[in-house]
Design a binder for these strands. Structure first.
Lengths: 93, 93
DNA sequence: ACGCGGCACTTGTATTTTGCAAGTGTGACG
DNA sequence: CGTCACACTTGCAAAATACAAGTGCCGCGT
């Protein structure tokens, strides 16, 4: 019983999948995501909160006011879907 | 070289993937999509235009003012990505 | 001790997207 | 000739997103 609406509820909003794709490379800091993706800062903050609440990623405190965002197991499980979508996007057939 | 942004440009907007998922069951008429998905009618019209322009689906004239929407090969190729996402959405692990 | 700078955000406001309700055009059918 | 189903369009309100600027925190150099 597949539930596409449930998936889109979490990762269907703008920037969400791009954030997760970037995190597949490894934990990233806020500024890294912002610069590499070009996402507006308030949207990034909002999405990170939502994705954390959904159990897709978690905050890792590094130093005083520095932390990293890393995928949980549930977040890593998005890898398949992301590569499938990315492959489709690059196929010009 | 995978291009997730390119994919999201086409199918990342609201309702787009849900429309494609429904069309995977076979060609559907406008009213069918509207009733089964609960999508607002102006959004449905807009998405269908965009998806047709992107080569994801095509219009099949049936009778006078009745037509069906069917996936192209490029649209069918989204099946993998959709099932991957849907599986992720149903997995509560 | 004090100011500076980087980091992770927030806040305010404009712009774009989405949603809702109602209306339009077309041709078949009685 | 009127009615109906179908596939939309149009006008307007609400929500999401973008842009620009500001805030709080602490470590570091002077």
């Amino acid at each position: 019983m597949s539930d596409l609406p449930a998936a889109l509820e979490i990762v269907g909003k703008r920037w969400a999948l791009l954030i997760v794709e970037k995190l597949l490379e490894g934990p990233q800091r806020y500024g890294d995501l912002q610069r590499d993706l070009g996402v507006p800062t308030n949207m990034l903050a909002t999405r990170l909160r939502e994705l954390e609440a959904a159990g897709v990623l978690r905050r890792l405190p590094l130093r005083h006011n520095t932390r990293a965002y890393a995928l949980t197991d549930r977040g890593l499980a998005l890898g398949d879907a992301i590569t499938a979508l990315a492959r489709w996007g690059s196929d010009k057939s």
